[in-house]
């Protein structure tokens, strides 16, 4: 077993332990379980980071990338952003869902080949790496925004219907969910913007035949525009809350299409 493989397995194990402790805490309210969950989570994140080092190094050295690396970089970004949010508002429920997602991704894709299969022209690898990193952070922020948005929609509905149960009281306050969804939307739009810009710069300098007519590039730009519109609507306070949450569902659908589906149509951008 390779070095980063071992660390990645350790990551999955620790995340699972954290998730189980959170679930136990939600069920029994034993404070000690919460403490264990936080410890397992932090340690797991450390393992996660270590398991990424080689891949990120390769990425910035020789533009090497594969689907597996993309997915663990994505899940790392997701955990990182959630941790950043959680330092401000207590959101165990959000972290729990993030962990389920990360574990599912890790479990499903663990068997993916690790070799770096696509040789991408390696000059200006730095800009390429920046492009990948920022884009993935952006997508992770959108995923986080989606999770907060879905929880928001659930709680909103409960409040409108006036039906309460014990699960209801364990959710974060409505306004915090909305704020977190909005902040990650905002951050995601910024990060994906940087990712797109650095990607275009890199393609230009690399002299690649990558143009706006490439399906993946245009899909990414459309995705970005959708989020920009959502931000505009929210900033001007035309809409807020429920409608914005629904819009961000549409936005995330665009993310999924850009991220997975468009690779089959794109010639110049078909890595991983």
């Amino acid at each position: 077993m390779t070095f980063d493989n071992a660390f990645f397995l350790g990551t999955l194990f620790l995340y699972f332990a954290a998730l189980a402790s959170y679930a136990g805490f939600l069920f029994s309210n034993r404070v000690v379980l919460n403490r264990w969950a936080v410890r397992a989570l932090m340690l797991g994140f450390g393992f996660h980071t270590v398991s990424l080092i080689r891949q990120v190094f390769e990425l910035f050295q020789s533009s090497a990338m594969n689907l597996f690396a993309v997915l663990i970089l994505f899940s790392w970004s997701l955990v990182l952003l959630t941790l950043l949010i959680q330092s401000r508002v207590r959101m165990r429920m959000v972290m729990g869902i993030v962990l389920v997602l990360v574990l599912a991704l890790g479990g499903i894709f663990f068997g993916l080949p690790r070799y770096f299969d696509k040789a991408i022209p390696s000059f200006n690898a730095f800009w390429f790496g920046t492009h990948v990193l920022f884009s993935l952070l952006g997508y992770a922020a959108f995923a986080l925004s989606l999770i907060c948005g879905l929880l928001y929609l659930f709680l909103e509905r409960q409040l409108k219907l006036k039906s309460t149960n014990s699960f209801f009281y364990r959710l974060p306050p409505l306004e915090s969910l909305e704020l977190m969804a909005f902040r990650s939307l905002w951050g995601g739009t910024l990060l994906l913007g940087l990712g797109l810009a650095s990607g275009l710069l890199w393609a230009r300098w690399a002299g690649l035949p990558l143009s706006f007519r490439d399906p993946k590039v245009s899909a990414a730009i459309i995705t970005w525009l959708i989020y920009a519109v959502i931000l505009y609507v929210r900033f001007t306070a035309r809409w807020r809350g429920r409608k914005v949450a629904y819009l961000s569902l549409v936005g995330f659908l665009a993310v999924l299409i850009t991220f997975f589906v468009m690779n089959y149509f794109s010639k110049g951008h078909g890595f991983f």
Binding site: N29, L159, S166, Y169, P172, P173, E175, S176
Partner: peptide, 23 residues
């Protein structure tokens, strides 16, 4: 246990709702 939370008077339910919405 949540014996101590979960308001059972009308005025404290109002407070609880306020906290569910605004934190």
């Amino acid at each position: 246990t949540t014996l101590h939370s979960g308001s059972i008077s009308v005025s404290s339910v109002a407070v609880q709702l306020a906290q569910m919405i605004f934190g």
